[in-house]
Simulated scan of single mutants.
Amino acid sequence: MSDRRATISDVAMAAGVSKTTVSRFINGQADRISPATRRRIERAIKSTHFHPSSAARSLKARGNDIICLIVPTFEAPSVGAFLQHASHALINAGHTAVILGPCDTPEALGKQHAVLAGMNPAGILIAGNLSQDDLKTLMSGVLAPILPYANDTGEKAASTLLSMMAEAE
């Protein structure tokens, strides 16, 4: 037997249904699924020894409170203090601060874009300078208020972003 943890994909394959159908079943939307399909999913969950990931469920549930702090490079001497002050201000306002970086190569930029797009953050704070092209690449398809770097303290930048988010609601 493999040490690998079963995933929704494993359950879907075993039940002969889509991952979306398994997700609906797990998230309490079983009324939208036929009784025969529910039974197949239940059997597949037992046979694969599937257990929902509490980390994944937590991220999904809290997705709307995540604020991403994008760091193009960690080389600037003021980045550490900026991130510390911005993170504290965001956490004190009830958000989860997630720091992504660096974005200083095309490969890193692409990886950070994939992570960012998957997070669906409530807001984005750019903690440094990015070219317009890099900013477009990073933000492609991401729908969230964005505050590009300003020469503010981290606390002031976080406050400005939170105000932008409140206005966007």
Rank of each mutant, 00 (worst) to 15 (best):
S54G: 09
T20L: 10
A97V: 01
V22G: 00
Q132K: 12
Q29H: 15
D65P: 06
A93H: 05
C103V: 11
L161R: 04
A97R: 03
G141L: 03
L135A: 15
G94D: 09
Q132A: 13
G101F: 04
N151R: 11
C103Q: 00
N151K: 12
M13C: 10
S9Y: 14
V142A: 06
A30P: 03
G80N: 08
L162Q: 06
P77L: 11
G118W: 02
R38L: 07
I126V: 15
G128W: 01
D3W: 08
R32S: 13
K111R: 14
R4L: 13
A127T: 10
L162M: 11
S54F: 06
A144H: 04
E167V: 14
D133P: 02
I146M: 09
P72W: 01
D134E: 15
T20K: 13
I70S: 07
R39N: 11
A14V: 03
T21L: 12
L138N: 08
S58V: 08
E107G: 10
E75N: 14
F82S: 02
A89T: 08
M1P: 11
D65L: 11
S159T: 12
D134W: 01
H49I: 03
S87R: 02
E75S: 15
L162E: 02
A12Q: 05
H88K: 14
G141F: 01
D104S: 15
L143Q: 15
H85G: 06
A168P: 01
A6S: 12
Q29F: 09
A158S: 02
I45V: 14
A157T: 04
P52S: 09
L90N: 05
G80P: 07
F82C: 04
A12P: 09
D133E: 15
P77T: 10
K46C: 05
T137L: 07
L69N: 05
